[in-house]
Amino acid sequence: MPNLRDIRQRISNVQSTRQITRTMEMVATAKIRKAQSRIESARPYALSMMEVLGNVARFVRDAKHPLLEEHEKHERVVIVTVVSDRGLCGAFNSNILRMAEGLMREEAAQGAESDIIAFGKKAIGYFRYRGIEPMASYRDVSDKPSIEEARSIATRVIEAYSAGEIDGVKMVFNRFKNAAEHIAEIHDLLPIKHTVVEDETDAMQLNPEYVFEPSADAVLEHLLPTYVETLVYRALLESAASEQGARRSAMKSATDNASEMITSLTRTFNRARQGAITNEIAEIVGGAASLEDE
């Protein structure tokens, strides 16, 4: 028979755990909303930017730009992994990290070495533990990424790519679908595919002659790095929103599990208590019976 006091202790332990997970769930719920509105407010810029890029690209059909140029060699790639600083969010981080590792293996099979840019403490820890030192790491910003971080990542890869040090850049991150769902995705960042630029063009209605200031080529040259920045920024924002979503789901199921555990422990507790009472009654009855016999 389990000890009554022990059971009572466990119930109160589980109850306080549930209190914590429930609070975390509510905090995450509030943060999802904020993260979502941050994605919303980044949208106008991204859309206008695409429109401008599309317009420019139409006039620079066979544009020559280092970021559009595919390198002949394929020896070194950079994988930007975007995860969170904190855990307790289910498979959010491990999905991305596993995907990034798979990507590294694929690249290795093609004879290319991979460098990691780690965004979020969880990625830094993961790769360090495996003896891989990230070429750049960003910490304590995963829940509120700003354009500064995006710019810094973009600048780094753009410079390395233009200098010919690396031959490709991929980004692995969680795309935010809705509060309950996020999808781990791999996105090719560099080289910028001509098709990306041209697809944007086709979507645009054909406009009359444009004036470029100072020139179409110069505009494109400025625009492409900004385009990369915008992509990175968007990924960071989506990942931040997904993180809160993932945490909310994880904490919700933790809370549910705790509730279930409390129910079953309470049941055990009641059974044990009833057992003890039955025992006592049996003893009293037995004692009384032995007295009557005298």
Partner: peptide, 9 residues
């Protein structure tokens, strides 16, 4: 208003 279409840096 009525400016020609333009893209500039």
């Amino acid at each position: 208003p009525l400016h020609a279409p333009l893209v500039g840096v």
